[in-house]
Amino acid sequence: MRNLATRVIFQTLNDKRSVALILIAPLLILTLVYFLLGDSDYVPVVAVDENVPSQLLEAFEAETLDVRLDAVANPFDYLADHKDVDAVFEVTQAGTTITLREPSTKSSKAVREIQAALSILNPTPDVEMNYVFGEEGQSTFDSFGYVFLSLFSFFFVFILSAMALVKERSGGTLERLLMTPIKRGQIILGYTLGYGVFAVVQSILIVLYTVYVLGLSSLGNIGWVMLTMLLMAGTAVLFGATISVFARSELQVVQMIPFTIVPQVFFSGLIPLDLIPYGLGNLSYIMPIFYGATAIKEVMVYGNGFTGVWPYFLGLVIYASVLYFLNMRALGKYRGH
């Protein structure tokens, strides 16, 4: 087993792209996610009709809005002619109207700022909002960053392991290996151990980078996060090995990603499972990324330790055991068993 793990390590080290895939790609994509989902300094552009009272105009200008005073005959035509404007605000005899270009994050931000301006004129009872975990106004990255930790620790190791094992099957090395006295379990564990070494480095790198460079806060001990990612990577090796049984080439592994990985992204916790209709949220229990993401959430968002993560660890261990068993069966076919 150790000799196979050593071979996997050296083989991977000799392929610089694989090293980059497992160590650099997650950091690169996390950085992109940070910028895409992090705090935005976008200032919505709102066209305000000339007939709007000056007091209201001053309230608008006090908010984070780019206000354009203009003669608006028809807000639909106005928005069609002015592509840079997000919303049109009018006060007519019929009442107050806000016309928006389309439902979007930009529109939501424009509406929030307009409502803030209006509330100054019509004070409403002051409502204080409190959150048990997290805080009001935190960015999407702060809210969902933990999901990506689980996703990346699984996805990149999965790709590497599935590709490597497909290559082993198509290149004849697996056939040759199984014609030696090596035990089937040693092959599977050797692979898991070999990639496990990279997974250790990967999890330490990703967690430290996310917490200390990108500033994702963690209420709990990040050691538990690293351990979760390590378990995820181990499961990913076995998941990749299982998928490789059904693929004849590296291309076929890629073709299976929409069926095996993409659904897991949606069931990982990005969308609250209670909101998924027809009880489909229960499908998450057959998806390893869910277990990883939820365990990491328990630590980073809820500040829990072993008491919070153990059910999900157990889920991953059971998942990995089932995959181990399936791989043993698949390898048995090479030996006439």
């Binding site: 071979r7 290149g171 004849g172 056939e175 090596i182």
Partner: peptide, 24 residues
Amino acid sequence: FMPQNDGLYDDLSAEANLEFFGSI
């Protein structure tokens, strides 16, 4: 056993291939 499609690890040297199989 020498399989039809060689069965070698391309990302390893000839010596490393031999050392790996020999170690088994």
